[in-house]
Simulated scan of single mutants.
Amino acid sequence: MRPLHLSAAALPLAVLLLTAAPVSARAHPHDTTTHTPVTAVDGGFETPAVPAPSPFTTYPGGQPVGPWTAGGDSVDLTSDRLWDAAEGHQSLDLNGSSSGSVSQQIPVLPLTSYVVSFELAGNPAWAPALKTGELRVDGTPVRTFGFDITGRGFRDMGYIRQSAVFTNLLKNSVTLTFASTSPGVGGPVIDDVRVRSCLLVLCPPTS
């Protein structure tokens, strides 16, 4: 984004996919995973703060973005001076100058299932209208996602809640990655990333 002128006993990881749930960014009534959370550090992308009066800060691949690490070309940490965040004051555009990603290693317990949820929107200033990306666990895609920016704007981002479930069998940590699969300078926008453990029989149902 540039300034506007203007089943799986034999597998190490079993993955189940969920569909998006259009839930409010501040209330998640379908989030019934009440077991001990393993929350991604700074899932709201509040650190580091984008320095005023800049609307965003670009991080090339390989650079830290708070506790996350940028990958691909670059990402833009974006202040609500430019567009509304789903929560807090900042969100993340997964396209900086081109398609990028962010990753973070999180602790997990063996033989435990986890729900990853996040708010999704799209940079409304640039084509293409459909912004796409992937959520990956240890490099394996566990959810593809898309957001159509048609009719949206900086103060009407239209965030929707997305979620996926994965089951860890043997590992003590996994790497969570959000990656853009959209071209150009404006990509999917993510915010409010949450990771919670759940009993497999109580995890949100797959479709």
Rank of each mutant, 00 (worst) to 15 (best):
A8F: 03
L11N: 07
N168Y: 06
V174Q: 11
T33N: 13
D80N: 14
P188L: 11
V115T: 11
T181L: 06
G133C: 10
D156E: 01
P37N: 06
L109G: 00
G72E: 08
A21P: 00
S180M: 10
L202N: 14
Y159E: 05
S207C: 06
E134P: 00
Q63H: 14
G71E: 10
V142I: 15
F56N: 04
A179Q: 15
A40C: 01
V174Y: 07
S163P: 00
P141E: 02
V41A: 14
L135C: 09
C203N: 05
W68L: 07
S54Q: 14
T177A: 11
D76R: 14
G62Y: 12
P37L: 08
P55I: 00
G186E: 06
R143H: 08
T19M: 06
T144V: 08
V201F: 10
E46V: 07
V193F: 06
V108D: 10
V41Y: 03
G187M: 09
Q104D: 02
V165H: 03
K131S: 01
F56S: 12
V165S: 03
L169P: 00
F56K: 06
R155K: 14
P55R: 09
Q63V: 10
L135D: 11
P53Y: 13
L82Y: 13
S103W: 04
N168D: 15
V174A: 05
L199H: 15
L111P: 00
A127I: 03
P188F: 00
E119N: 05
T150W: 04
F118D: 09
L200Y: 10
F118Q: 06
A40P: 13
V189T: 12
S7L: 14
V142T: 11
G187L: 07
R26K: 08
T78F: 06
I106P: 01
R196W: 03
I106V: 15
W68H: 06
G146Q: 14
L200A: 14
L202M: 10
A10Q: 14
L170D: 12
A70D: 00
A52D: 13
V174T: 13
G187E: 08
L82H: 06
G146Y: 04
F178W: 10
V185E: 15
T78L: 09
L199W: 02
L6T: 14
T47H: 12
V137W: 03
V193A: 09
N172I: 02
T39P: 04
W83K: 07
P110V: 03
D156H: 12
S24F: 01
G133E: 10
T112I: 00
G187H: 05
A70N: 00
K131A: 02
I190S: 05
T144Q: 13
I190T: 08
G133S: 08
V193M: 10
G151I: 07
L16F: 10
P107V: 07
S103H: 07
L16P: 02
P22D: 13
T69L: 06
R194F: 01
S180G: 02
A20P: 01
G61T: 02
R143F: 04
T58R: 15
F147Y: 15
R155Y: 09
V137E: 08
V41C: 02
P51W: 00
T69C: 01
T150K: 10
D156W: 04
S98H: 09
A21T: 14
P128Y: 03
T69K: 08
S74N: 05
F118N: 04
S54G: 03
